[in-house]
Design a protein around this nucleic acid. Structure first.
Lengths: 224, 224
DNA sequence: TTTCTAATATTTGTATGCAATATTTCTGTA
DNA sequence: TACAGAAATATTGCATACAAATATTAGAAA
């Protein structure tokens, strides 16, 4: 271990989060404190503190004297999360159009151009990473720590449901075209259009997910 | 006390939050676990759990092995919070315009009309409470638990800075006029206007606060 | 067989004590 | 006197033990 500066309960929180995100701990599963303490070779005290931290992320639920459970996400709740994600992303795009400084605008433009190359090359894995960076850049461009936190939290939460989105044929090219509208609006300082364009983009991502999960394997829908 | 179903650490979290919000625990103040345990007559364990919970609300900071401190808010950070609040409220208004059912729309309208009477009567304290309800109604009308949570969190966080806002002469009447635009847009299902109107409203609240805190006592600015 | 009750067992909440780390104070030297 | 290093002190992190509450199961009565 030997991670300095991090306390055992923090490391634990990360480990438990991983188990949930990778599906080892399935939704609705009871998270027994003794079990966790045993599994990770610590006492119940750091386990309890880790659970408290995880409640804040929305990954687990806790009720007094009834323990912790992996948050079971319903289709409705998932849909709500996608809506919220869209709204928050759109807001960040709006604020970015208003607040980004010249350097940030240049960086965004450069990143977007780099991604064009990945689309041509059909390089999916690079595009996925660049896409994440694209969105995070826009969160940061809003110059608002609170909105930035909201956006990152939602992104983390929805990540497992988004993994496969770029598998859909033509999705890469379409995504890039949607980004194009967003980037153009932000660079032009057109906040209203930036908002609308980003909202469309994220909604389309949700649609893509819907198609995946209905047409393909239903597994993803019940994973978190 | 004797609140059933609530655990000691939860009650504690509320008590500590109160001390912070009322100004007994000033920003930057070290929250020593022994001190808190002594003060509230419990052991350090529930104190620690309460502190973990409070970190999530943003009311306190914790660093490994360096303890908890009351979050010291800078003017910049406060300004950011107001911006975020405005964006989130505006988004809720937007979604409410799209999603409120007939009953909710009627309720919102009724509440707004009731508030007109309070303005006429100059009944400040009732208006403050009704105002809170007005905004919470719009959060709920968005039919999105995530946005609702964001909005409530921000409201709680900014509450201490907003206490005195309605003291400004004519502010009651102005507030109600701004609400009028929001309500009309929501009832008409005009999401874009609802968004814009709410954004204006909240920004004006921030302006009112600025005037208060510069013109009047500076205390509020350093309270949280 | 089913249902209600009571006893048992499991699990969470809290207290206390020890170990590890950070902070403060003291002492010696430049 | 000021500064650096070391010892002392204080405070947090973790483990263990016990108390309180909930869930489960066994048994009796209908």
């Amino acid at each position: 271990m030997a991670v300095e500066g991090r306390t055992r309960s923090e490391v634990l929180a990360g480990q438990i989060a991983d188990e949930i995100l990778t599906g080892s701990f399935v939704p609705g599963m009871r998270l027994d404190e003794h079990m966790l303490a045993e599994r990770f070779k610590v006492s119940r005290t750091p386990v309890r503190e880790a659970l408290r931290q995880l409640v804040a992320t929305g990954l687990i639920d806790m009720q007094p004297r009834r323990g912790a459970h992996v948050a079971a996400i319903t289709a409705d709740r998932l849909s709500e999360l996608f809506v919220a994600m869209g709204e928050v992303e759109a807001t960040c795009a709006r604020l970015s159009a208003l607040s980004m400084n010249p350097i940030e605008r240049r960086r965004l433009q450069a990143l977007h151009q780099t991604m064009a190359g990945m689309v041509e090359a059909g390089n999916e894995s690079d595009y996925v990473e660049a896409n994440r960076q694209f969105h995070v850049t826009i969160y940061a461009g809003a110059h608002n720590a609170t909105m930035n936190d909201f956006a990152l939290t939602l992104r983390r939460r929805l990540d497992p449901f988004r993994r496969a989105q770029f598998r859909a044929p033509g999705r890469l090219r379409q995504s890039h075209a949607e980004h194009e509208r967003v980037v153009t609006a932000i660079l032009a300082g057109d906040s209203a259009t930036a908002h609308a364009a980003m909202l469309d983009h994220v909604n389309l991502v949700e649609d893509a997910f819907d198609q995946m999960s209905h047409g393909g394997r239903r597994a993803a829908g019940s994973r978190l």
